[in-house]
Design a protein around this nucleic acid. Sequence first.
DNA 1: TTTTAAACGAGACGGTACGTCGCGTCTTTAT
DNA 2: ATAAAGACGCGACGTACCGTCTCGTTTAAAA
Lengths: 199, 199, 199, 199
Amino acid sequence: MPPRITRRSDAARTAILTAAVELVGEVGYGKSSIEAIAARAGVGKQTIYRWWPSKGSVLLDAYLDANVGGEPEDPQGLPNTGDLVADIKAVLRATVDELNDPRFERPLRALTVAVLEDESLAAEYSRRLDEPTRRLKKERLCAAQRQGQLSPEVDLDAVVDTLFAPVAQRWLLRSGPLTYEYTDHLVETVLTGLLWPRS
Amino acid sequence: MPPRITRRSDAARTAILTAAVELVGEVGYGKSSIEAIAARAGVGKQTIYRWWPSKGSVLLDAYLDANVGGEPEDPQGLPNTGDLVADIKAVLRATVDELNDPRFERPLRALTVAVLEDESLAAEYSRRLDEPTRRLKKERLCAAQRQGQLSPEVDLDAVVDTLFAPVAQRWLLRSGPLTYEYTDHLVETVLTGLLWPRS
Amino acid sequence: MPPRITRRSDAARTAILTAAVELVGEVGYGKSSIEAIAARAGVGKQTIYRWWPSKGSVLLDAYLDANVGGEPEDPQGLPNTGDLVADIKAVLRATVDELNDPRFERPLRALTVAVLEDESLAAEYSRRLDEPTRRLKKERLCAAQRQGQLSPEVDLDAVVDTLFAPVAQRWLLRSGPLTYEYTDHLVETVLTGLLWPRS
Amino acid sequence: MPPRITRRSDAARTAILTAAVELVGEVGYGKSSIEAIAARAGVGKQTIYRWWPSKGSVLLDAYLDANVGGEPEDPQGLPNTGDLVADIKAVLRATVDELNDPRFERPLRALTVAVLEDESLAAEYSRRLDEPTRRLKKERLCAAQRQGQLSPEVDLDAVVDTLFAPVAQRWLLRSGPLTYEYTDHLVETVLTGLLWPRS
DNA sequence: TTTTAAACGAGACGGTACGTCGCGTCTTTAT
DNA sequence: ATAAAGACGCGACGTACCGTCTCGTTTAAAA
């Protein structure tokens, strides 16, 4: 490992990410400003601009720092008790809990808004957050296929979308309450098959 | 119908909505400003503030004007050829076409960003755009139930979510290309049932 | 007189000029900022930038407002008691008093610094401050010529420079104390002739 | 002479002074920055701050280096051909030439601005530049007194001010063109006596 | 010759101010 | 009476420099 060339201050980095998450949690994405983040972090604005191209980029780093912790790529996968339906329900219930907790919800919504507005941030988001998560989900589904719980022919990407996108969408657009009932019902509907009479 | 009480200038209204859509289509939501909309519309800023509470509200009106045309609630429902799978595929293909057309995509994305950031706008959006659309979709699915193509027990809301949310999500987050292949595949996966061995 | 086209706020204008003079008097030209002037005046920065191109320009207007009072071009000329030497001495003593009074000295020094650095401001300064003043001085000298106290052939511009520039210079560069002794002595030296034996 | 205590780099010193003069000559005093000087000199900012307290101080050193060359206090005095008027005219003509040459004018103006704004720099300027120069001028005038060309009673300081301040002032404030005509005329006016009828 | 302490280049840091843009309000002018 | 025009107080933008503070790296004096 070559010696670090830059003398970046980790204290400043941490203070900025923390301040960003807090601020965005308090006043929302649109009303947060880089100026306010810097002030709350006790940092010069330039220190933010030096290392991040945009407010959204700060939020992405903050989210990654908070949710992945460190270097090791998220090691633990989705639960596998042998019961696919129960496991997916549990995962979605956990998601519901998070999305109903303002401490998580506000920054995540802010990050999402940023991603919607900024194509290049969307790419980074995809690469660093969406894809790793999707991979874990597919791994769980793949295990279910191997265990004979899921048709081996089904497209796992489509299944993942089908299970998780409705929740994300309902949350994002606030088109309805996010409850265990909703997600449980969704899982049952999706995983039970829909056409009738069954071919 | 009672005579209009306000002397609201329809010319100004139209100019503002047009300018808003154009501007947002050119520079995106975040970089658009009420100031610029007013300038482009040849209108005083106050004329905008008089009638709309926010930029997002202007966009919502603009979208409704453009896509519904006028007062009468969108009368035509989804196509019904008797083949549910084909009809849904056609609807999603049309959606894909729209979302891939920058003239529609940019303002719609802008509107969505506005909705994400503004809870009260989200409510209005839900009422005036999301719910009417959802009603049409459910009507088509309900017809399929009556025709014996779909289990009578299935929750139509869940089916609608399952079919349309993945597309919306993929579009919003740009997590993948929006193609006919994707939507066709999605419809087949969702409507064919997933568990194996079946029940 | 045509009706005013702009709706400029006189309250803001006055507040800005006052704040500028005060601030410059307290911390000096270099350490004054437009930001601080605006803050002290209770005014938005843009209101300064809208009407003045630079800090120095504000100071010039402030100086003119303070020292000329209003529209009528400074009507009173230099004193004329019939005794040229005494009159010039009195004028220079008054100048000394002003330049030794921090309330006048600091803003005037600030203005001068601004003029030195900005060619176009120098032109305006010349036109609006220097030339009117010089005209008054020359009028007094011209009267002396008509009264036979001064050679009719002498170049009045040169005499004005000779009498006033040394004081200005000593003040500007702080190359010595500004006292009545100095100015009295200067007037005597200049107006008495220097060559010896005379012509 | 004790050995140098500090290991100051003469290469750096020279590079800094050169860069300062060049930069100030190109963009003016106000728009020059220590940062830019350091960059142009290929030097760390700290190396400037280590040895000079301010931008103006650098300029003063640069001016002294350029115009005095080295340690020995400017040995050559003003010309003395025996004709005072001609000699002073020649000196002023040389001054005019310098002040009309942008390569000298810009840095000198910058230095002057710095001196106006900084009282302690003014003191140093006085001691190291103004006074030595003034001494030379007075020596020439003193010689004229000894030669019977100038009244023995006249105050030489006043005469120096009277002859040189008008030129400096006209240059500084750009209140008129700097020409040989002006300076020649000035010398004649000053040195010929002004009162009439001559006492 | 080797050591060693300074001065060096580089540049990150917490800040201040820049000059611009846009906010939402308010006032004036001209239909 | 209503609309365009746009000035206003305000706040944030992203940039430029401030002066201070580490960082390794010369480099020249002392050992």
